[in-house]
């Protein structure tokens, strides 16, 4: 499962140079873990006495591999003989572009929904919701402060603490939490002016 989500973030987000990826040595700064956490922290339902979390990460990994297999079988994608992410399924055998094609096919429901695992089987709304969320989670995980929670990043939110300044914030020129900026250029209009 881990490998499938690594293949996913590898297609979505820019790869971090190994020298910057420390201390975790992951070119996606561990964002695939953020996706797994998010998918497993999404839905809970009540059944008699039990309040169940519906874990979505594992069935999502199966869905991605199943969709990739369908694309390969229909010659819409080409599988490399070797697995690019050890332990992964068919999705990890595809080029980045073909992985994006697979996600596009899922998002457009251009696949056989019957062969997908529960809760996705013949459930177009759920397929569209989760496939879309994969992209949002990847970008939010990568460009927010999440990777900088470092060794505490997979803990419950209230147990995390920032261990360093987020690399992506540095890259994009965002100074992080700010007390304020001296960029006041005056008022174009005031309430006093419109009330007279």
């Amino acid at each position: 499962m881990q490998a499938t989500f690594q293949a996913l973030t590898d297609a979505f987000v820019p790869s971090v140079q190994p020298e910057y990826a420390s201390p975790f040595h992951e070119t996606d700064m561990g964002v695939h873990n953020y996706i797994i956490l998010s998918l497993n922290h999404n839905i809970s339902i009540q059944q008699q006495l039990n309040h169940h979390i519906v874990p979505l990460a594992y069935p999502t990994a199966i869905m991605l591999n199943s969709a990739a297999t369908q694309l390969v079988n229909h010659h819409q994608a080409q599988a490399f003989p070797q697995c690019l992410f050890p332990g992964g399924g068919m999705f990890s055998h595809l080029s980045r572009k073909d992985r994006i094609r697979t996600l596009a096919a899922l998002g457009n429901l251009d696949i056989d929904l019957y062969v997908l695992p529960s809760p996705f089987q013949n459930n177009a709304g759920m397929v569209k919701y989760v496939t879309d969320a994969l992209s949002r989670f990847s970008l939010f995980g990568y460009y927010s402060e999440w990777p900088a929670y470092g060794s505490t990043r997979v803990l419950p939110p209230d147990d995390r603490c920032l261990e360093f300044f987020p690399l992506t914030w540095q890259q994009v020129g965002y100074p992080g939490v700010s007390l304020g900026y001296r960029d006041f250029r005056g008022f174009l209009l005031t309430m006093a002016e419109v009330k007279t």
Partner: peptide, 21 residues
Amino acid sequence: ESPGLSAQLLFGFSQYGYNSL
């Protein structure tokens, strides 16, 4: 917005699909 929210909403959430395709 801040970078994570901007990236998510501007470049990660669309009905159009993928610009690269």
